[in-house]
Every structure is written in C-alpha cells, then in structure tokens.
Design a protein around this nucleic acid. Structure first.
Length: 654
RNA sequence: GCGCCCGUAGCUCAGCAGGAUAGAGCAGCGGUUUCCUAAACCGCAGGUCGCCCGUUCGAGUCGGGCCGGGCGCACCA
C-alpha cells in the first residue's frame, strides 16, 4: 500500500525537480518523521539536490513542497528543519484505501523466474535441536515472504544420507549397541527413534575417543555407504529414512513443509559430480596440482581468500569433497547441469500438497519441474560461509555470472545455551561462562520436540488457569489442547525470528517460554481480542459488514482529525507499511524486520483498543461504533495476512 | 597472520539503501479491572551508541585504525 504512495509521490517529486531545477532524480526515497505531528512521510531529496545544484536545501525544499502540496492524496507539504519536506496525507481517502486494501488484498505482482530456497537440511542421524529450528523457521518464513511478494518458490530440504554423521550412528548400532539390521528396524519402527540415535551418537563420540584406532571403522563404514549395494549401506539407508520422517514430523508441528527432499545419495548415484567435474575441467575452472602441498589434487582458485587461496575439490585419492558435491548440486539448482534426478512421491500433507523426494531408482510421473532457478537461497549457518563462497566461485568460474549472482547464502548465527539452561540439563557450568555451546557429539543441546513439548505444557497450564477462572461455559480439553499448540507455535516462531540472523542466540528456557512482552502470543492476543469484539457485535445484533459500510460513508476526515483519530491514523499508517516491511525483509534478507513490524502493528492496536473511552460495544453514538468497527475489522483482516506470512496461527481464544 | 560476525539502557535486543529529541521487551518503581477477557494498558526511572580519527550540511548507521568477544581459513561435512 505505502509502496504505491511512494512511487506516486516519487514521480511527483521527480517531475517537480525537473520543472523547477531541470534536475533529474534517480530514485526518491521516503522516510517517516520521528513524530506523527510532523507529518506522515518525509522527503530528504532536497539535501541530495542541494549538493548537485549548489543551492540551499531549504530553498529547494520550498519549491518541492509547493509542488507536492498539489499532488493527489496530499493534504499539505511543509518544509521542516534544515530542508525536509514533510508530507501530510489526506487522511480520509487514504484510510478508505487502507481498508479496501486490507479487506481485499490484491496478490503482489508475479515476479518471473523460479526461486529455490534450501533450508533445514539436518544430518539424518539424530533428533533435531533448537539450532535446527532456527534454520527451518528462518527458511520457512523467508519462503513465505517470497511467495507473499509474488515469487514462485520451491522449497528443498537437503538430506546428507551418505555422510560421516550417518556413518557414525551406523558404527554405533554395529559396534556400540551391537544391533542387527532387524533389531534396528524394530527400533526404527518405534517411537522416538531420533532420541535413541541422539544418545547413541553421543556414545559413539566416547567410543572413538577411548581408542583412536576405532576411527578406522568410521572410514570403512562411510566408504561402504558411498559404495552402496551392501548391508552397511542398507542399514544407513534405514536409519536416514526413518530419521528424516522424525524431522518432518517435528517440523510439521511448527507448520513447516517442503516441496522436495534432495538426497545426497542420488547426487552420487546419478553421477552429478562426474558431470560437474567434466564441465569444470573443460572450462579450466579447476586444475590439477602437480607439486606443492596440494600435489595430486584438483583445486579451485579462490581469489582474495588470504594465504590459502586454493580450495581442494578432488582429493589426491580421487574422491570428491563435500564442497565439490555442493557445486554440482548448486549447478543443478540453477539449471546448469544437464542431468536431473528422478522423483517419487514421499508423502501427501493434509492439505493435499505433495512432498517429492529424489531417487536414483525408478521415478514416478507427475513431478513438477525442480531445479531451474533464477535465484537460490541456501539457509546454512554462518560457519559455512567459506565453502558457500567456494560454491559461488565455482558457478562463476563456469561463466555463469548471473547464476553466481543469484546464489545467496542466507547465513545465520548459532544458538547457544544459557548457563541456567545448560545446568538445568545436568551440565556443570562455571561461574565465568556466559554461554554454553551445543554439541551433538556430547549430546548437549535442547531437542526441538522437547522444547515444543515444554511450550505446549506451559501454554496449557496458562489456559487452564484462565478457563478455570471464567464464569459460564468453559472450553473442552481438546479445544484447550489445540489452543496450547497454536500459542506455542506462535511463541516459538516469533522467539526465533525476532533476533537478527547474525546474532548469536543465547537460548534460555525461561525466556523462550515467556508469553508476555515482545512475543508471538502478544501478537495473537491482539487479533483474538479484535475478533472477539467483532463476535460480540454480532451477538448484540449488529452486523459488522453493515457497520463497516456505514463507516466508509461517514465523514472519516473529521473523525481522523481528532484525538482518537490520531491513534487510529498511526495504526493505519503502520498497516499500510506492511508491504514495505516485507520488501525490506527480502532485500535485507532479514526476516526479523517483518516479524518486528507485525509486533509494532499489534502494539499500536493494543494501545488503542484497550482504552475504555474507545469502546466499540459501548460507543456513545452509532457513528462512532461504525467507525471503530471499521478499525477493528481492518486490523483483524490485515493481521490474518501478516501472521499467516509469519507462520503464527491465531487461536480462537487465548 | 588473513577474512567474516558481534559490541547501543541493569539484562536481551531493534534501529541494514546516513536524516529531526536513539527505541522495544524484560527486570525495577508507581498506577489502571463495577469498562469489548489484564498473555493487556498508562506513567516514572534508566544511554559518553566499545575507543580514536576521517568523509558529510548531518554518523549508532559509511571509511580507516585500535580495544574486547565469537567464528572461519581441512585432502571433515
């Protein structure tokens, strides 16, 4: 909504600059005055023009202000400070526009070209932990914003089913737990297999540490898995497949779904790397070293990477590194590898959406076209920045400049544990430590399902307290359970989104369980209240659509000019800026911007509706009731969209 | 050594195309419920934006240098 105003007024400013000063402005950006009394939008173009025109900013501002005052939708424009132009919008038509926009949000213009987002990509060898949740929630929400803003997005979850981590658990089953394939199969069919593997994986760490010679088992196992067609590979396959199902179930609790599971095994079996190697060799993007420390290796030159400029892609024993495989995968994503996976249906979600999986065996018909993206976002922790740069460099070295340009690493920092939370989990933490690193090897970390369980339990307890205090009918257990799950989901998603992605999150259980203040439940609460007001109106014989229609026909201008109007106006301005917030989130690749914006909108509504003098049901006049209903209805409708984009469900009651 | 990230209120963090008096949550203190549900609202208090230099009409924001903390620079993934 506001972006439309920006471009319209921007045109007016450009025209004015042309007419008055024969100056050509490239882009006109608008800011917002620090206080509402100063105006609705602020223009800083006079400062820029002052430089090129060698005239006083104020002088330029005067001229632009005069022109802008005549622009449609503008009530007045005045010069402030050293050369700002503050624009006051005509409130009534703008407010009607905002209402129409939120009541019937036109989908954003379709942006051509496919976008692939890879996220989650957890090693399929143990339960997901809170760090993985950060990845998945970040990725899922980014996808949602992309789609909201008109992008065609495919979501891929990379399954490293032939890596060392899976190999370690296989070693665990064989040599630590001493289980046969059938015994593992039985375990895998039971509950909490991912938890079992979590503990087993930690034991394998100790097993290796006790006798370094045992590391040989890891190498042998990994080799057998890569080779395929043997008992070890079958066991690895079983473990990985079952753990992936656990991860999918965990993520589904948070509303996170995928379009494709891309398996590393299939990248190997279908010889993606061999093809990528041919391409890289032919383009002389990689070269074989004949002397020096990298003798016998194929390396990719990394410019400006410091002392160690070359990255080894193929080891001297002829095997390819992970980074090499990743280059092949990235090339496939971008449609620059003339190979493709075969596909099978993995599962069908409740809403009918099909999750596909890659396969190197027999494929099924009907798969959509995966992997011809214009833009690729890889959601991977910041520790992978260097290999991600290598992947990008590899794509670029093949001459695919645009593809390299379109390769984004959505890097995020890790999640560490607060001393209190680590202690609660039974770890000794010294006084000086301010944070404790999670460690899969040591089995130290907060499991995703445990965290969700704790949230649901806490939310349920809160609900029970409130329900028991109620007069009249109380909710049944299953309704309370559903609300508890929805509130937990909102709390967790917001909690992991509100930090910038370059910030290390020190995870504290107490803090994560908070339902007051800047949290998901705060946002949910506002919408629930607003919906409740609408419901009460209907109960008392009013019809919300009629009231809204009536309000639209009233003199909005007079009302919006008053004291109540100021509060309503700032709420409407904030709602109008949601499209801008979403675009900013995409441009800055920072999902937190939209999450924070949603909180700000909720906050503005809370502060308004809470005041008894602005009561809708007990409004002094029918006119005021109609006007306030329009506000409440606009808020609900808008927040339904915003929260859906953020993946925050709205419970029926808190 | 080189590269990246972080340093803003007691604590956790916003402030990411430089812009007006630096914001929010938590914690603290004081208020608000015969009023659409208090997971709420209102108020008070709390800041040399790590330090120095520079660019600019203007720097928390950009550049350089320093200090402190974290991560990366594997023939691991």
């Amino acid at each position: 909504m506001i972006l439309h105003v920006h471009s319209q007024l921007g045109e007016a400013v450009r025209a004015a600059a042309r007419a008055a000063f024969a100056a050509e402005l490239a882009t006109v950006s608008f800011q917002y005055p620090p206080r509402a009394e100063l105006g609705d939008l602020a223009l800083t173009a006079p400062f820029d023009l002052a430089k090129t025109l060698r005239r006083k900013p104020r002088e330029i501002a005067e001229r632009l202000a005069a022109e802008l005052s005549r622009a449609p939708g503008v009530r007045k424009a005045e010069v402030a400070g050293g050369g700002y132009v503050n624009v006051f919008l005509d409130r009534a038509p703008f407010a009607r526009g905002v209402y129409d926009w939120v009541a019937d949000p036109a989908p954003a213009a379709r942006v051509p070209g496919q976008v692939i987002v890879e996220h989650t990509s957890i090693n399929p060898n143990k339960a997901a932990h809170v760090g993985h949740l950060r990845n998945a929630i970040l990725g899922d929400t980014f996808v949602s914003i992309l789609r909201h803003r008109g992008r065609d997005v495919g979501v891929q979850n990379y399954i490293d089913d032939t890596g060392v981590q899976v190999a370690d658990v296989v070693v665990g089953f064989r040599h630590v737990a001493g289980k046969s394939y059938d015994e593992v199969a039985e375990l895998a069919g039971g509950a909490r297999f991912d938890y079992y593997c979590w503990d087993l994986y930690a034991q394998v760490g100790e097993f290796y540490a006790a006798d370094p010679a045992r590391k040989k088992l890891q190498a042998e196992t990994l080799h057998a898995i890569e080779e395929g067609g043997n008992e070890t590979a079958r066991l690895a396959e079983l473990v990985a497949a079952r753990i992936v199902e656990c991860h999918l179930a965990t993520m589904e609790r948070l509303g996170i779904r995928y379009d494709l599971l891309a398996h590393e095994r299939d990248i190997l079996r279908l010889h993606f790397w061999d093809r990528a190697f041919e391409l890289l060799e032919k383009a002389q993007a990689i070269r074989r070293e004949t002397e020096g420390k990298n003798a016998g290796c194929w390396v990719l030159t990394m410019e400006s990477e410091g002392a160690d400029e070359d990255k080894i892609i193929v080891r001297s024993n002829g095997t390819v590194t992970y980074t090499g495989k990743d280059i092949a995968y990235q090339l496939w994503k971008m449609g620059h590898l003339d190979r493709d996976f075969r596909y099978r249906r993995q599962k069908r979600y409740d809403d009918g959406h099909v999750l596909w999986t890659t396969t190197s065996g027999e494929g099924e018909d009907g798969a959509p076209r995966f992997g011809h993206a214009r833009e690729v976002y890889n959601v991977i922790d910041v520790g992978q920045s260097y290999p991600q740069r290598v992947v990008k460099a590899g794509v670029a070295a093949l001459g695919h400049e645009e593809a390299a340009e379109g390769s984004h690493h959505l890097a995020y920092e890790k999640v560490v544990l607060s001393p209190a939370t680590a202690r609660a989990m039974g770890y000794a933490v010294s006084e000086e430590e301010t944070a404790v690193k999670v460690s899969g090897r040591k089995g130290l970390g907060v499991k995703a399902d445990d965290l969700v369980d704790a949230l649901v339990t806490k939310a349920r307890a809160e609900i029970d307290v409130r329900e028991d205090a109620r007069e009249g009918e109380r909710r049944a257990a299953d309704e309370r359970g559903r609300a508890a799950r929805e509130i937990s989901m909102g709390a967790l998603r917001y909690f992991l989104l509100k930090f910038g992605r370059t910030k290390i999150i020190t995870f504290d259980m107490e803090e994560a369980l908070a339902f007051t203040g800047e949290t998901g439940p705060y946002i949910q609460n506002g919408v629930v209240r607003a919906r409740n007001i609408r419901a009460k109106l209907e109960d008392e014989g009013h019809r919300v659509p009629d009231l809204v229609a009536r309000a639209r026909a009233l003199d909005l201008g007079a009302w919006l000019a008053g004291e109540e109007g100021d509060e309503v106006w700032s709420l409407f301005m904030l709602m109008a800026r949601s499209d801008e917030a979403a675009e900013q989130a995409l441009r800055a690749e920072e999902v937190a911007l939209l999450a924070k914006h949603a909180f700000a909108v909720a906050q503005a509504f809370h502060s308004y509706y809470q005041k008894p003098r602005y009561s809708v049901l007990h409004a002094e006049t029918e006119e005021l009731r109609a006007l306030r209903t329009l506000v409440v209805d606009a808020f609900v409708r808008h927040m339904e969209v915003l929260t859906r984009v953020l993946g925050i469900p709205i419970p029926e009651r808190m």
